[in-house]
Simulated scan of single mutants.
Amino acid sequence: MSTMTLQEAADQLGVHYMTVYRYVRLGRLPARKVGGTWEVDPSDLESLRRGHDRSVRPKHSADWAKRLEARLLEGDEAGAWGVVEGALASGSTPAEIYTGLIGPAMASVGERWHAGELSVAEEHLSTSVVLRLIGRLGPRFARKGRTKGRVVVTTPPGERHFIPSLMVSDFLRGAGFEVIDLGADVPVEALSGIVEGLDGLVAVCISSTRVNAERAVRRVVKAANKAAPDVPVLLGGASIQDADHASTLGADGYAKDAPGAVEVLLELVSG
């Protein structure tokens, strides 16, 4: 038998059909929908059977990330959120969901798309589900109390990927900063208009993932420096190699990822 239906899988396990369906939605049992019917690999079912009790709470974030990736590629928002809820119930924080689940899952999707394993439609479908997950997780980063200052988070013109900037924004909110997130593909003039004269501004963070975007990044850094000469500009993202690279583009600092951005800004405001 090459594959089996959910009902056949339920019969094998001796459980109700809806129980197996829930396993699929929670990412416990890998499955793919073919012609409107879920299909299960018998080897995956056997793995579930052998580790039935242990599979509810994976020990490693990589396991959760794989489960999440499977739900993203199916466009299964409810199932993806079920994976997130499972990880939260296991003790993961919202920040760890971003760095240990969503980040790795989307990185894998991107790599598989570049390798030709996934279609553009599958990549876009995964992105749309992740955006909704972030929308639900974002409020959990909200923090009461006095703000540590305002931070503008933006991207260069032509940048289409703004999931990294969304995650940076939430991390900064969780650290006590007030964030103005401008989203993707931000015109330089728009950034200047926001930054100029903004009270309490402590930094401008620019996220860049697009290859060959150095010219656009330099324009954004220059515009931010002109609009707010005394405000430091930080660079990060997949297209920024390291601190030296960020410096050559005119930036005052570099952050490898969202936790790194928090670390740099906390040092900035405390110093």
Rank of each mutant, 00 (worst) to 15 (best):
G145S: 05
V186L: 09
F141R: 06
P164G: 09
L198H: 05
S169L: 09
P187D: 08
H161Q: 10
F162H: 14
P187Q: 01
V211T: 15
T147R: 03
R173T: 03
S165Y: 02
V202E: 11
G145P: 00
F141T: 00
N212G: 12
I206P: 02
R160A: 15
N212R: 15
T154D: 06
D181F: 05
G145H: 01
P139C: 05
S208R: 02
F171W: 14
F141C: 10
V179T: 01
G200W: 05
G174W: 03
G183W: 11
L172P: 02
R160G: 12
E159P: 04
A213C: 13
E189V: 15
R150V: 12
F177G: 01
F141S: 07
G200Q: 03
P164L: 01
V179C: 09
V186T: 01
S207L: 09
K144V: 08
D199R: 12
G145C: 01
V204Y: 06
L201C: 11
I163P: 00
V186F: 08
G200K: 06
L201T: 07
N212E: 13
L166N: 08
R146G: 11
G158S: 04
V202F: 07
E159R: 07
V168L: 02
P187L: 01
R143H: 01
L201Q: 02
S169N: 08
A184F: 03
I194Q: 12
S192P: 12
T209G: 13
I180K: 08
G145D: 02
V152S: 06
M167G: 08
P156M: 07
S192T: 15
V195M: 11
E189W: 10
A184T: 04
I163V: 08
A190C: 11
S208F: 05
R146Q: 14
N212M: 14
V188L: 09
F171V: 12
G200F: 08
G197Q: 02
V186P: 06
G183A: 11
G149H: 04
T155H: 06
G149I: 04
E214D: 15
T154L: 06
F177Q: 04
V211I: 14
G193E: 15
K144T: 12
S207K: 04
V151F: 01
D199G: 13
E189K: 14
A142C: 07
T155F: 07
D185M: 10
F171Y: 12
A203G: 07
K144G: 13
G138W: 02
R210S: 13
L191E: 04
V153C: 00
F171H: 10
D185P: 03
L182M: 15
V179A: 09
G174K: 02
R210P: 09
A213Q: 10
N212V: 14
V202I: 10
T154A: 00
L172R: 06
A184K: 01
A203Q: 05
D181S: 10
R160C: 12
F162C: 12
V188F: 10
R215Y: 14
N212A: 15
I206K: 09
T147W: 01
S169R: 08
P156N: 09
A184I: 05
P156V: 04
A213Y: 00
S192A: 15
E196H: 14
I163Q: 03
A175D: 07
G200Y: 05
E214Q: 14
L166P: 04
L191A: 02
F171S: 09
G193D: 13
G197T: 07
P139D: 03
A203Y: 06
R215W: 13
G138D: 11
A142N: 11
A216M: 14
L172Y: 04
G200H: 07
E159L: 05
S207Y: 08
